[in-house]
Design a protein around this nucleic acid. Structure first.
Length: 255
DNA sequence: ATGGCTTCATAGTGAAGA
């Protein structure tokens, strides 16, 4: 099966891109982040027309996550049970026997911001949530916008980014804590081109100059990692008119 | 150049993203 994740930065604006991408890339599950729309406005029919089920956890203006899947999603859970959160950042379901967790990690804004503290707390909550989820389900994949570049090679200019949000040591420690739960960064299981990124700033011609970061990830439990056959970033959607600033990443798991 | 661009909410600009 193929599983993918894409921060679409407004599903209203990007619906056409997502539909066309799914037609060209008929993955078994696609996790979306930053829907920026309330559940009542979710375009369920548009996905139904192309053979996809949709589950979603949205809110007006900000955040919002969804999972699109060919198979019917089972045991749908929204939010983290043990972490009270006004913001809609997590949804999970079992698809083809795999527990798929779709997360939109807090950005954090800057290290001296209250939002950074919220990010740290949220990541601590996610760690507990994932620990429990792995214990309960076994085969688990955590897909989404982590808002963390795990290593310097995931940053176009590590010197320029040093000490900034998205690359700070405490954030990277949170990423490694997820790995320590028994999760593997599926993208790094394979030889990859240098300067592989999933996000580029809209400003300064960031994409054309490849001034990006790798902050969207697909982590899988060991049992799944043994069956992973590929993991790739698809930069094509970033080349379209009015693109999202993020682009999809796809991991394939042998059945 | 603490800017640059895009989205949303709003009807001027401001917040937020990363």
């Amino acid at each position: 099966m193929k599983i993918a994740t894409w921060n679409v930065n407004s599903l209203n604006v990007r619906l056409g891109h997502v539909i066309e991408w799914l037609k060209a890339n008929p993955v078994d599950a696609l996790c979306l982040q930053e829907l920026k729309l309330e559940d009542a406005k979710f375009p369920t029919a548009a996905f139904d027309e192309i053979g996809y089920n949709a589950i979603f956890n949205g809110q007006k203006t900000y955040n919002g996550v969804a999972i699109l899947s060919k198979a019917r999603p089972e045991d749908v859970v929204k939010d983290m049970a043990d972490f009270a959160d006004e913001q809609k950042r997590l949804i999970a379901a079992t698809i083809d026997g795999v527990r798929v967790v779709c997360a939109y990690v807090v950005n954090g804004q800057s290290l001296d911001s209250e939002k950074y503290q919220y990010k740290m707390q949220w990541l601590t909550g996610l760690r507990s949530y994932m620990q429990r989820t792995i214990a309960e389900y076994g085969d688990v994949a955590l897909l989404g916008d982590y808002n963390i570049a795990p290593e310097d090679r995931d940053v176009h200019d590590p010197k320029a980014w040093e000490g900034q949000v998205l690359v700070s040591p405490p954030e990277r420690e949170h990423f490694q804590a997820l790995v320590a739960l028994g999760l593997t960064d599926s993208f790094r299981m394979f030889e990859q081109p240098e300067k592989s990124f999933t996000w580029w700033d809209y400003r300064m011609n960031g994409f054309k100059r490849n001034l990006g970061l790798r902050i969207d990830h697909i982590l899988v439990t060991k049992t799944l990692a043994e069956r992973v056959t590929s993991s790739v970033i698809d930069v094509e959607p970033r080349k379209l008119e009015r693109p999202s600033d993020h682009t999809p990443i796809i991991t394939e798991v042998r059945s």
